[in-house]
Protein backbone atom coordinates (compact mmCIF):
# COMPACT_ATOMS: atom_id res chain seq x y z
CA UNK A 1 0.00 0.00 0.00
CA UNK A 2 3.05 2.25 0.40
CA UNK A 3 3.44 2.17 -3.41
CA UNK A 4 -0.17 3.30 -3.84
CA UNK A 5 0.21 6.08 -1.32
CA UNK A 6 3.37 7.39 -2.99
CA UNK A 7 1.66 7.49 -6.36
CA UNK A 8 -1.43 9.14 -4.91
CA UNK A 9 0.51 11.90 -3.15
CA UNK A 10 2.45 12.72 -6.32
CA UNK A 11 -0.67 12.67 -8.50
CA UNK A 12 -2.79 14.85 -6.22
CA UNK A 13 -0.11 17.55 -6.30
CA UNK A 14 -0.77 18.05 -10.02
CA UNK A 15 -3.02 20.76 -11.42
CA UNK A 16 -5.08 19.17 -14.21
CA UNK A 17 -8.54 20.67 -14.66
CA UNK A 18 -10.58 19.41 -17.63
CA UNK A 19 -9.19 20.67 -20.93
CA UNK A 20 -5.77 21.57 -19.52
CA UNK A 21 -4.32 18.06 -19.33
CA UNK A 22 -1.93 18.51 -22.23
CA UNK A 23 0.34 20.78 -20.21
CA UNK A 24 1.06 17.95 -17.82
CA UNK A 25 4.49 16.25 -17.88
CA UNK A 26 5.07 14.26 -14.69
CA UNK A 27 2.25 11.70 -14.99
CA UNK A 28 3.73 10.50 -18.27
CA UNK A 29 7.05 10.01 -16.47
CA UNK A 30 5.37 7.84 -13.81
CA UNK A 31 3.77 5.65 -16.48
CA UNK A 32 6.72 5.32 -18.89
CA UNK A 33 8.84 2.77 -16.95
CA UNK A 34 5.83 0.45 -16.53
CA UNK A 35 4.79 0.05 -20.20
CA UNK A 36 6.38 -0.52 -23.63
CA UNK A 37 5.35 2.84 -25.03
CA UNK A 38 3.56 6.02 -23.97
CA UNK A 39 2.09 8.84 -25.99
CA UNK A 40 -0.14 11.82 -25.49
CA UNK A 41 -2.90 12.40 -28.03
CA UNK A 42 -4.36 15.61 -29.41
CA UNK A 43 -7.06 15.94 -26.78
CA UNK A 44 -4.78 15.40 -23.77
CA UNK A 45 -5.13 11.67 -23.07
CA UNK A 46 -2.03 9.83 -21.87
CA UNK A 47 -2.04 6.38 -23.44
CA UNK A 48 0.36 3.60 -22.41
CA UNK A 49 0.61 0.19 -24.06
CA UNK A 50 2.06 -3.16 -23.04
CA UNK A 51 1.95 -5.77 -25.75
CA UNK A 52 1.06 -9.37 -25.06
CA UNK A 53 3.63 -12.15 -25.33
CA UNK A 54 1.36 -13.81 -27.91
CA UNK A 55 0.44 -12.69 -31.41
CA UNK A 56 -3.18 -11.81 -32.28
CA UNK A 57 -4.06 -11.13 -28.67
CA UNK A 58 -7.29 -9.38 -27.61
CA UNK A 59 -7.00 -5.71 -26.72
CA UNK A 60 -8.15 -4.51 -23.30
CA UNK A 61 -8.41 -0.83 -22.43
CA UNK A 62 -8.25 0.29 -18.80
CA UNK A 63 -9.47 3.84 -18.32
CA UNK A 64 -9.09 6.21 -15.37
CA UNK A 65 -9.74 9.88 -15.93
CA UNK A 66 -6.91 12.22 -15.17
CA UNK A 67 -8.75 15.51 -15.06
CA UNK A 68 -10.16 17.18 -11.98
CA UNK A 69 -12.97 19.64 -11.38
CA UNK A 70 -12.12 23.25 -12.08
CA UNK A 71 -13.28 26.83 -12.45
CA UNK A 72 -12.46 29.43 -15.10
CA UNK A 73 -11.81 33.18 -14.84
CA UNK A 74 -14.55 35.23 -16.53
CA UNK A 75 -13.51 38.72 -15.51
CA UNK A 76 -11.32 40.76 -13.17
CA UNK A 77 -13.12 43.68 -11.59
CA UNK A 78 -11.67 47.08 -10.71
CA UNK A 79 -11.12 46.07 -7.08
CA UNK A 80 -8.96 43.13 -8.22
CA UNK A 81 -11.49 40.42 -7.42
CA UNK A 82 -11.64 37.52 -9.85
CA UNK A 83 -15.05 36.48 -11.15
CA UNK A 84 -15.41 32.92 -12.37
CA UNK A 85 -17.66 30.27 -13.83
CA UNK A 86 -17.74 26.51 -13.62
CA UNK A 87 -15.18 24.91 -15.94
CA UNK A 88 -16.22 21.39 -15.04
CA UNK A 89 -17.78 19.56 -12.12
CA UNK A 90 -17.95 22.27 -9.46
CA UNK A 91 -21.00 22.81 -7.31
CA UNK A 92 -21.41 26.12 -5.47
CA UNK A 93 -22.02 24.18 -2.24
CA UNK A 94 -18.38 23.10 -1.90
CA UNK A 95 -16.91 26.51 -2.73
CA UNK A 96 -17.34 29.19 -0.05
CA UNK A 97 -14.14 29.75 1.95
CA UNK A 98 -12.17 27.28 -0.18
CA UNK A 99 -8.50 27.80 -0.78
CA UNK A 100 -7.81 27.83 -4.53
CA UNK A 101 -4.99 28.21 -7.03
CA UNK A 102 -5.33 30.37 -10.14
CA UNK A 103 -3.06 29.21 -12.97
CA UNK A 104 -1.98 32.39 -14.70
CA UNK A 105 1.45 33.57 -15.78
CA UNK A 106 2.32 32.57 -12.25
CA UNK A 107 0.37 30.26 -9.98
CA UNK A 108 -1.48 32.45 -7.51
CA UNK A 109 -3.03 31.29 -4.25
CA UNK A 110 -6.44 32.70 -3.57
CA UNK A 111 -9.49 32.30 -1.39
CA UNK A 112 -13.13 32.17 -2.40
CA UNK A 113 -14.42 35.32 -0.74
CA UNK A 114 -17.67 35.21 1.20
CA UNK A 115 -19.46 37.75 3.29
CA UNK A 116 -19.17 37.18 7.06
CA UNK A 117 -22.44 35.90 8.57
CA UNK A 118 -22.73 39.13 10.59
CA UNK A 119 -23.29 41.08 7.40
CA UNK A 120 -25.99 38.80 6.00
CA UNK A 121 -29.71 39.21 6.59
CA UNK A 122 -31.55 36.33 8.27
CA UNK A 123 -33.05 35.50 4.89
CA UNK A 124 -29.68 35.40 3.10
CA UNK A 125 -28.15 33.16 5.76
CA UNK A 126 -30.64 30.41 4.97
CA UNK A 127 -29.92 30.31 1.25
CA UNK A 128 -26.89 28.79 -0.47
CA UNK A 129 -24.75 31.36 -2.26
CA UNK A 130 -24.91 31.36 -6.07
CA UNK A 131 -21.63 30.82 -7.90
CA UNK A 132 -21.98 34.02 -9.90
CA UNK A 133 -22.09 36.00 -6.64
CA UNK A 134 -18.76 34.57 -5.43
CA UNK A 135 -15.38 36.06 -6.20
CA UNK A 136 -11.76 35.04 -5.61
CA UNK A 137 -9.36 37.22 -3.67
CA UNK A 138 -5.66 36.79 -4.49
CA UNK A 139 -4.56 39.84 -2.53
CA UNK A 140 -3.15 41.97 -5.36
CA UNK A 141 -4.66 45.20 -6.70
CA UNK A 142 -6.52 45.05 -10.03
CA UNK A 143 -3.63 46.11 -12.27
CA UNK A 144 -1.26 43.43 -10.91
CA UNK A 145 -3.98 40.78 -11.15
CA UNK A 146 -4.68 41.78 -14.76
CA UNK A 147 -0.99 41.48 -15.54
CA UNK A 148 -0.71 37.97 -14.13
CA UNK A 149 -4.12 36.50 -14.91
CA UNK A 150 -6.21 36.48 -18.06
CA UNK A 151 -9.84 35.72 -18.72
CA UNK A 152 -9.97 32.00 -19.50
CA UNK A 153 -7.27 30.93 -17.04
CA UNK A 154 -8.21 27.85 -15.00
CA UNK A 155 -8.64 27.64 -11.24
CA UNK A 156 -8.40 24.52 -9.05
CA UNK A 157 -8.62 23.66 -5.38
CA UNK A 158 -5.29 24.08 -3.64
CA UNK A 159 -5.26 21.32 -1.04
CA UNK A 160 -2.72 18.53 -1.41
CA UNK A 161 -3.01 15.11 0.20
CA UNK A 162 -2.76 14.28 3.89
CA UNK A 163 -2.82 11.02 5.83
CA UNK A 164 -5.68 10.34 8.21
CA UNK A 165 -5.82 7.41 10.63
CA UNK A 166 -6.52 3.84 9.55
CA UNK A 167 -5.05 3.93 5.96
CA UNK A 168 -7.28 6.80 5.01
CA UNK A 169 -6.20 9.69 2.82
CA UNK A 170 -7.77 13.11 2.43
CA UNK A 171 -7.20 15.64 -0.34
CA UNK A 172 -8.49 17.21 -3.53
CA UNK A 173 -8.80 15.38 -6.86
CA UNK A 174 -8.85 11.90 -5.31
CA UNK A 175 -11.63 11.77 -7.91
CA UNK A 176 -9.96 10.32 -9.92
CA UNK A 177 -6.24 10.30 -9.12
CA UNK A 178 -7.19 7.33 -6.92
CA UNK A 179 -8.09 5.47 -10.12
CA UNK A 180 -4.87 6.57 -11.84
CA UNK A 181 -2.81 5.45 -8.81
CA UNK A 182 -4.58 2.08 -8.88
CA UNK A 183 -3.63 1.51 -12.54
CA UNK A 184 0.01 2.48 -11.87
CA UNK A 185 0.09 0.10 -8.89
CA UNK A 186 -1.48 -2.69 -10.96
CA UNK A 187 1.15 -2.19 -13.69
CA UNK A 188 3.87 -2.54 -11.05
CA UNK A 189 2.36 -5.89 -10.03
CA UNK A 190 2.10 -7.07 -13.64
CA UNK A 191 5.62 -5.97 -14.52
CA UNK A 192 7.27 -9.37 -14.15
CA UNK A 193 4.42 -11.32 -15.73
CA UNK A 194 3.85 -12.02 -19.42
CA UNK A 195 0.43 -10.80 -20.57
CA UNK A 196 -2.25 -12.79 -22.37
CA UNK A 197 -3.80 -9.57 -23.72
CA UNK A 198 -2.52 -6.35 -25.30
CA UNK A 199 -2.98 -3.91 -22.43
CA UNK A 200 -3.79 -0.26 -23.15
CA UNK A 201 -4.05 2.07 -20.18
CA UNK A 202 -5.66 5.45 -20.73
CA UNK A 203 -5.42 8.36 -18.31
CA UNK A 204 -8.21 10.22 -20.01
CA UNK A 205 -8.94 13.91 -20.40
CA UNK A 206 -12.21 15.77 -19.96
CA UNK A 207 -14.32 13.30 -17.94
CA UNK A 208 -15.63 15.99 -15.62
CA UNK A 209 -16.66 18.00 -18.71
CA UNK A 210 -18.17 15.56 -21.19
CA UNK A 211 -16.02 12.44 -21.38
CA UNK A 212 -14.45 13.53 -24.67
CA UNK A 213 -11.07 11.97 -23.86
CA UNK A 214 -12.34 8.44 -23.25
CA UNK A 215 -14.46 8.60 -26.39
CA UNK A 216 -11.52 9.71 -28.57
CA UNK A 217 -9.22 7.09 -26.99
CA UNK A 218 -11.69 4.26 -27.59
CA UNK A 219 -11.99 5.32 -31.23
CA UNK A 220 -8.21 5.26 -31.61
CA UNK A 221 -7.47 2.03 -29.71
CA UNK A 222 -10.48 0.01 -30.87
CA UNK A 223 -10.38 -2.29 -27.82
CA UNK A 224 -12.11 -5.68 -27.59
CA UNK A 225 -13.14 -4.84 -24.05
CA UNK A 226 -12.69 -2.07 -21.51
CA UNK A 227 -12.76 -1.58 -17.76
CA UNK A 228 -13.28 1.89 -16.30
CA UNK A 229 -11.86 2.72 -12.87
CA UNK A 230 -13.53 5.64 -11.14
CA UNK A 231 -14.89 6.63 -7.74
CA UNK A 232 -18.32 6.06 -6.20
CA UNK A 233 -19.83 7.59 -3.08
CA UNK A 234 -18.44 6.50 0.30
CA UNK A 235 -20.83 6.14 3.20
CA UNK A 236 -20.82 9.11 5.56
CA UNK A 237 -23.40 10.76 7.77
CA UNK A 238 -26.49 11.42 5.70
CA UNK A 239 -25.70 9.49 2.51
CA UNK A 240 -28.87 7.90 1.15
CA UNK A 241 -29.14 4.13 1.55
CA UNK A 242 -28.06 2.11 -1.44
CA UNK A 243 -26.19 5.04 -3.00
CA UNK A 244 -23.00 4.81 -0.95
CA UNK A 245 -20.53 2.18 0.20
CA UNK A 246 -18.60 1.95 3.49
CA UNK A 247 -14.92 2.86 3.20
CA UNK A 248 -12.83 -0.30 3.45
CA UNK A 249 -15.44 -2.51 1.76
CA UNK A 250 -13.10 -3.25 -1.16
CA UNK A 251 -13.68 -2.96 -4.90
CA UNK A 252 -17.14 -1.81 -5.96
CA UNK A 253 -18.22 -3.59 -9.16
CA UNK A 254 -20.90 -1.81 -11.17
CA UNK A 255 -23.96 -3.51 -12.66
CA UNK A 256 -25.83 -1.42 -15.20
CA UNK A 257 -27.69 -1.81 -18.49
CA UNK A 258 -24.83 -0.17 -20.40
CA UNK A 259 -22.20 -2.43 -18.81
CA UNK A 260 -21.27 -5.82 -20.23
CA UNK A 261 -22.57 -8.81 -18.24
CA UNK A 262 -19.60 -10.90 -19.35
CA UNK A 263 -17.07 -8.37 -18.02
CA UNK A 264 -19.00 -7.81 -14.79
CA UNK A 265 -19.40 -11.56 -14.14
CA UNK A 266 -15.72 -12.20 -14.76
CA UNK A 267 -14.72 -9.38 -12.39
CA UNK A 268 -16.94 -10.90 -9.71
CA UNK A 269 -15.53 -14.38 -10.37
CA UNK A 270 -11.95 -13.11 -10.00
CA UNK A 271 -12.79 -11.32 -6.73
CA UNK A 272 -14.29 -14.51 -5.31
CA UNK A 273 -11.50 -16.78 -6.52
CA UNK A 274 -8.68 -14.61 -5.16
CA UNK A 275 -10.53 -13.58 -1.99
CA UNK A 276 -10.55 -9.86 -2.81
CA UNK A 277 -13.19 -7.91 -0.86
CA UNK A 278 -15.90 -6.45 -3.14
CA UNK A 279 -19.43 -5.05 -3.26
CA UNK A 280 -21.88 -4.83 -6.15
CA UNK A 281 -23.29 -1.45 -7.18
CA UNK A 282 -26.53 -1.58 -9.18
CA UNK A 283 -26.90 1.55 -11.31
CA UNK A 284 -30.07 2.38 -13.20
CA UNK A 285 -29.63 4.52 -16.29
CA UNK A 286 -26.36 6.27 -17.00
CA UNK A 287 -23.35 5.40 -14.86
CA UNK A 288 -22.04 8.99 -14.96
CA UNK A 289 -18.57 7.65 -15.76
CA UNK A 290 -16.52 7.14 -18.91
CA UNK A 291 -18.18 3.72 -19.32
CA UNK A 292 -21.16 5.53 -20.88
CA UNK A 293 -18.91 6.88 -23.64
CA UNK A 294 -16.70 3.83 -24.18
CA UNK A 295 -19.50 1.24 -24.22
CA UNK A 296 -21.31 3.06 -27.03
CA UNK A 297 -18.21 3.93 -29.07
CA UNK A 298 -17.43 2.24 -32.40
CA UNK A 299 -19.64 -0.86 -32.88
CA UNK A 300 -20.02 -1.12 -29.11
CA UNK A 301 -17.29 -2.11 -26.65
CA UNK A 302 -18.05 -4.58 -23.80
CA UNK A 303 -17.26 -2.46 -20.76
CA UNK A 304 -17.02 -3.01 -17.01
CA UNK A 305 -16.85 -0.51 -14.15
CA UNK A 306 -14.91 -0.84 -10.92
CA UNK A 307 -15.20 1.96 -8.39
CA UNK A 308 -13.46 3.13 -5.25
CA UNK A 309 -15.68 4.47 -2.44
CA UNK A 310 -14.97 8.15 -1.84
CA UNK A 311 -16.43 10.50 0.75
CA UNK A 312 -17.23 14.20 0.10
CA UNK A 313 -16.85 13.90 -3.69
CA UNK A 314 -16.00 17.12 -5.60
CA UNK A 315 -14.77 18.96 -2.52
CA UNK A 316 -11.27 19.87 -1.37
CA UNK A 317 -11.34 17.24 1.37
CA UNK A 318 -12.36 14.01 -0.29
CA UNK A 319 -11.55 10.90 1.78
CA UNK A 320 -10.62 7.44 0.47
CA UNK A 321 -9.25 4.26 2.04
CA UNK A 322 -5.99 2.82 0.67
CA UNK A 323 -7.31 -0.69 1.40
CA UNK A 324 -10.02 -0.13 -1.22
CA UNK A 325 -7.47 1.10 -3.74
CA UNK A 326 -5.41 -2.01 -3.08
CA UNK A 327 -8.45 -4.26 -3.58
CA UNK A 328 -9.18 -2.65 -6.97
CA UNK A 329 -5.52 -2.93 -8.00
CA UNK A 330 -5.46 -6.64 -7.05
CA UNK A 331 -8.73 -7.32 -8.84
CA UNK A 332 -7.53 -5.66 -12.06
CA UNK A 333 -4.16 -7.40 -12.12
CA UNK A 334 -5.90 -10.78 -11.72
CA UNK A 335 -8.47 -9.88 -14.34
CA UNK A 336 -5.87 -8.84 -16.92
CA UNK A 337 -3.53 -11.70 -16.03
CA UNK A 338 -6.27 -14.27 -16.55
CA UNK A 339 -7.18 -12.92 -19.98
CA UNK A 340 -10.27 -10.81 -19.34
CA UNK A 341 -13.88 -11.69 -20.00
CA UNK A 342 -15.18 -15.04 -21.23
CA UNK A 343 -18.00 -15.21 -23.73
CA UNK A 344 -20.06 -18.35 -23.94
Amino acid sequence: MKNLQNYLFKLCGECLPSGFEREEKSVEALLAPLVDEVHKDSCGNIIGCRKSAFGNAKKIMLDAHLDEIGLMVTKIDDAGFIHFTNLAGFSPIALPASSVMVKGKRNLSGVVATLPPHLLSAEERKKPIEMKKMVIDVGYPAETVRELIKVGDPIILRQGCAELLNDRITGKALDNRAGVAVILDMLTTLQKMPLAMDLYVVFSAGEEFSGFGALNAAMEIAPDEAVVIDVTHGESGGTPRGKAFPLGCGAVIGVAPILSGAVTDRLKEMAKQYVIPYEMEPINGRTGTNSDQIATSRCGVPTGLVSIPLRYMHSGCEVADLKDLKAVSDLLSRYVNRGGARYE
Binding site: S42, G152, L215
Partner: peptide, 20 residues
Protein backbone atom coordinates in the same frame (compact mmCIF):
# COMPACT_ATOMS: atom_id res chain seq x y z
CA UNK B 1 -11.17 36.29 -24.46
CA UNK B 2 -14.54 34.61 -24.31
CA UNK B 3 -15.64 32.34 -21.44
CA UNK B 4 -19.26 31.35 -21.76
CA UNK B 5 -21.12 29.70 -18.86
CA UNK B 6 -24.09 28.72 -21.01
CA UNK B 7 -24.65 27.81 -24.63
CA UNK B 8 -22.53 25.90 -27.08
CA UNK B 9 -21.44 25.87 -30.69
CA UNK B 10 -20.59 23.52 -33.57
CA UNK B 11 -17.10 22.58 -32.36
CA UNK B 12 -18.73 20.79 -29.39
CA UNK B 13 -19.74 17.89 -31.59
CA UNK B 14 -16.73 17.94 -33.93
CA UNK B 15 -14.25 17.68 -31.03
CA UNK B 16 -15.67 14.27 -30.15
CA UNK B 17 -15.22 12.72 -33.59
CA UNK B 18 -12.70 9.99 -34.37
CA UNK B 19 -9.47 10.24 -32.45
CA UNK B 20 -10.39 13.77 -31.48
Amino acid sequence: RDVLSSGGTDIGSVQLLGKG
